[in-house]
Computed example of a mutant assay.
Amino acid sequence: MPEVTDVDGLTVGQVSARLGVTVRALHHWDEIGLARPSLRTAAGYRLYTAADLERLHRIVVYREVGLGLDRIGAVLDDASADVPGALRAQKSQVAERIERLKQLSAGLDRMIDAHERGLLLTVEQQAAIFGPEWDPDWPAKARRRYGPTTQWQQYAERSASRTPEEWQAVADTVAALDRALGEAMDAGVTAGSPQAHRLVGRHREVFAAYFPLTRQMQVCLWRMYEDDPGFAAHYDGVRPGLAAWFRRIVDADARAHGIDPDTATWE
């Protein structure tokens, strides 16, 4: 801080330059009675004395350690004020903010990792949760293919905050849906039936663990599932022909809601 001199009669601009605070701040402190210039010229301009400058110096010091203006006023004007106590309380608040910032930093690291890696699980955790057939390279492949999309960003945001236990719950829910689809196919559930529509809706709800899925997107997704050998093999492993069967159900549900499956787009 600039050294305080005994020169009286400093203008607000001169004080601003000496203490490194804005003229606006000085005017505000004057308005609220925290630091008012003691002198006034014949023309009505206010001037700061050496004593005023010393008070401003202390205000700047206390403000830099984070005390609020009300608290600073109490410290300066109340002779019985517990200044060490006020500073200790401020230090405690600073420590809390530091801890919150550390947590924020850790959260940002996870978010960055999730956007870059997709899945914040070790290979061992992935195998334990998703089964031995799971391809641990899938997240990297998916990012290369879908990285620029909104859906990848939504998936990453969910992944960043998800624990292994929560991923296990997602995997269990998906497995339960697969079983329900297989059982419905065995039971002869037909496309367009109320039960079929409920299964299609349930699939969208379950899939929301990754990103929100519209009916049009669902049509496109199951078109891909049926055509992609890996996905088709998974569903046909649940029941032979399940991928094609469920695509027919999804298409029928889309038609029931005014969507032409043949022209559906990813939106």
Rank of each mutant, 00 (worst) to 15 (best):
Y45D: 09
E226S: 11
S159H: 09
G182M: 03
P84A: 03
A86I: 00
W152T: 04
D6A: 15
T163Y: 00
F211G: 06
V15I: 12
G182C: 03
R24M: 08
R255Y: 07
A243L: 03
S92I: 13
P194Y: 01
V238A: 04
L181C: 05
A176M: 04
A169D: 09
E96Y: 07
V94Y: 04
A35S: 13
V4F: 03
A175E: 14
D251Q: 04
R143H: 14
P37S: 09
E96C: 03
L87A: 07
V12N: 13
A25I: 02
A196R: 11
A140L: 04
E54T: 12
A51I: 10
K91S: 12
A232S: 15
S92P: 00
V123M: 07
A86C: 09
R117D: 12
R204S: 11
I59K: 00
A17N: 07
G241A: 02
I32Q: 03
I59T: 02
D30T: 05
V75K: 02
R71M: 03
Y225V: 15
Q168W: 09
I32S: 01
Q103F: 02
E3G: 11
Q93F: 01
E64N: 12
E64S: 14
R145D: 14
V189M: 10
V189G: 04
D82R: 01
F246H: 11
S161T: 14
D236E: 06
L101Y: 02
M217V: 10
D78S: 08
R63P: 01
T190Y: 04
E267N: 15
R204T: 10
A209P: 02
G131E: 07
T265Y: 00
G131A: 09
D78Q: 11
V200M: 02
V94T: 13
A127E: 13
W167E: 08
L39C: 01
E3T: 15
H197A: 15
T49V: 04
F130S: 02
G66M: 00
V238L: 07
L19D: 06
Y48L: 11
G188E: 05
V61D: 10
D186M: 06
G131D: 09
